[in-house]
């Protein structure tokens, strides 16, 4: 996955609560790899382009390192065209299964949370 130069994200465009990002970054990183092998900056750019703000290398790489240890991703170094080499991360079958499971769980959690936070329900439950 290469980063198209015309599609560069605007740095710091979104500022989500850090707790939310910390809780969901694993799922988002797996999703960013679902299209195919990718490298650090391309994953960061992909997430930024989709409105999650700028993820720091110091946050992303430890996560990917743990996923590699857990067998969810594999890594491969590829020589760059005249530039430095790149470390590509790719989902394993186990990683793909984990992404599917986490996506389903997330949807159920999001539906439950959205339903609970529904303003109409909030009004009905508020004592007069």
């Amino acid at each position: 996955m290469d980063v198209p130069s015309a599609d560069r994200p605007t740095p710091g465009s979104v500022d989500w609560p850090s707790d939310w990002l910390r809780a969901t970054l694993g799922l988002l990183a797996l999703r960013a790899l679902s299209a195919g092998p990718s490298y650090g900056y391309a994953i960061i750019s992909e997430l930024e382009r989709h409105g999650f703000g700028t993820i720091k290398g110091g946050t992303l790489y430890p996560l990917l390192s743990r996923y590699e240890t857990a067998g969810l991703v594999t890594t491969e170094w590829r020589a760059g065209d005249g530039g430095p080499g790149r470390k590509y991360f790719a989902l394993t079958d186990q990683g793909r299964a984990e992404l599917t499971r986490l996506c389903a769980d997330w949807r159920r959690f999001a539906d439950t949370s959205t339903g609970y936070l529904d303003p109409e329900r909030l009004t009905k439950e508020t004592p007069a």
Binding site: G40, Y41, I44, G57, Y61, P84, G85
Partner: peptide, 9 residues
């Protein structure tokens, strides 16, 4: 090497 790669990018 991976840290240098990201800093280069």
């Amino acid at each position: 090497a991976s840290a240098r790669e990201l800093l280069g990018d």
